[in-house]
Simulated scan of single mutants.
Amino acid sequence: MSTPSPAQDKQLLHLVFGGELESLDSTRFKNLDELDIVGIYPNFAEAKKAWAGKAQATVDNAQMRYFIVHLHRLLDPDTDGV
């Protein structure tokens, strides 16, 4: 059994969340109490899958938007990776 390298062992956490925006030209939410916290994912690929699923499910509401936040960049600004 091989030991993961430090690069493979690093967690690149990503948060997926969304909600209804006040207008299409801003990122201000109508109601913070109604934000949809989809989850925290171990890498960008998994977060993108979750984001795509939620975005597709709400395609009929033009003001509903989902976002991916690179938590690893907030926790460790020197982190490489997506």
Rank of each mutant, 00 (worst) to 15 (best):
H70C: 01
P4N: 07
P77S: 02
P4F: 02
L24A: 15
A45F: 13
G39Q: 10
L35T: 06
L24Q: 14
V16G: 00
M1F: 12
T27K: 15
A47F: 09
P6W: 09
S26L: 04
H72Q: 02
Y66V: 02
K30M: 09
G53E: 12
L13H: 08
E46H: 11
V16M: 07
D25G: 14
K10C: 08
D33F: 05
N31V: 04
K49V: 11
A47E: 08
P42M: 01
E46T: 12
G39K: 11
T58E: 11
G53R: 10
Y66P: 04
H72V: 01
F67I: 05
L71C: 03
G81R: 02
L15W: 14
L75W: 03
A52M: 04
V38M: 13
L13F: 08
I68W: 02
L12P: 03
V69E: 09
L71G: 00
G19R: 13
L13Y: 01
D25L: 11
V69N: 08
L74V: 07
L32P: 04
A7G: 00
D36E: 12
A62T: 14
G18V: 03
E20H: 09
E20S: 08
G53F: 05
L13D: 02
K30A: 09
A7P: 05
D80A: 07
S5M: 07
A62Q: 13
W51N: 05
P77E: 00
E20Y: 02
G39D: 10
S26H: 04
K49F: 01
V82L: 07
E22Q: 15
L21D: 08
V82D: 07
H72N: 08
H70T: 05
L71D: 00
R65K: 15
L21K: 10
F29S: 06
F44N: 08
G18N: 03
A57H: 07
Y66I: 09
P4A: 07
K48S: 04
P42L: 03
M1H: 10
M64H: 09
K54N: 11
E20L: 02
L75P: 05
L24N: 14
D33W: 00
T58Q: 13
A62Y: 09
R28I: 15
F29G: 01
D76G: 06
V59W: 00
L12I: 08
N61R: 08
S26A: 06
T58R: 13
A55R: 14
I68H: 05
A52W: 05
D9W: 05
V16E: 02
P77A: 00
H70L: 10
V59T: 07
E20V: 13
I40L: 03
F67H: 10
L75E: 10
K49G: 06
D33C: 03
F44Y: 15
Q11I: 15
